[in-house]
Design a binder for these strands. Structure first.
Lengths: 144, 144
DNA sequence: GTTAGTGCAAACGGTTTGCAACGTA
DNA sequence: TACGTTGCAAACCGTTTGCACTAAC
């Protein structure tokens, strides 16, 4: 009788893991699926969900609920950071460091344990590449 | 031929609007539905979704995608603020003011246009009321 | 009376799950 | 061989939509 179930190494699993090891950017399921299919063409969406979930439970990945893009996943253990969403290229970048002091935003009696910051705007590539496209957008959430 | 469709005033609509006028707190669909049914017992979920959507388009409400609670709605026009999520009572509070300078978190070349901050921890009511409950995170009806 | 708004049920999109076939150990 | 993993399809959950009925104007 086995007390502990053994993990098996499959191409699908390794492929998904590698995608995140090669990239310091949060990805959505569709992006993971696309990149994964470059190596495993028959890769199934359910398999991606299952393995992502596994990696999150193992602590290898982190799940992010992004205000504009929905659920994203990123490699864990890279220290506290925030996220920048570029509305032109629809990509999310990691912002190193943290300029937010929890005590500055928390009223007396409230105990802050963690926080998340989502910045959005235009990334450096998009702002230098083509300014005309910056006005042509169809946002849901206009700037506050 | 009518050029402009006319809005009609219904009990359902008014009820939903009043819920937000009486409360400075973001609410989820289920909460809106519950509170609404106190006044309109037959209130339907689809009706709530339709009217909420309408109010968001009119600019009366704002849609929030909360990392822990999913989609929430709050009254618009109350100025820039952040949100505090209490993991004990599962409620979201508005944090007045903003202690985040976008220039402090944005690398050169990136243009920040807006940001959102979600803090989580324990609210003042929950931290003073009963410390033993802090480990028991399954509360339905928290204090107002 | 006209037609916007409602309730209901079915449709929808993202995510999870049951199951038979597959493939790793 | 044994059983963890996969692909597929169906189930699931939050949200939207089509439709007949209701009710505001």
């Amino acid at each position: 009788m086995r007390l502990k179930s053994m993990k098996r190494r499959t191409l699908q699993k390794e492929t998904i893991k590698q995608i995140f090891q090669q990239l310091d950017q949060p990805l959505g399921i569709e992006q993971i699926l696309c990149k994964g299919r470059e190596k495993v063409p028959a890769l199934n969406r359910a398999t991606v969900y299952r393995n992502i979930r596994l990696y999150v439970e193992e602590g290898l990945l982190l799940k992010i609920n992004h205000p504009a893009l929905g659920t994203l996943y990123e490699r864990a253990g890279r220290g506290h950071h925030h996220h920048f969403y570029c509305r032109i290229c629809d990509q999310v970048f990691e912002l190193p460091g943290c300029a937010l002091k929890e005590t500055n935003v928390t009223p007396k009696g409230f105990f802050a344990e963690s926080h998340e910051v989502f910045v959005s705007g235009v990334c450096s590539s998009c702002s230098t590449r083509d300014f005309s496209s910056i006005t042509n957008t169809d946002h849901e959430n206009p700037p506050a």
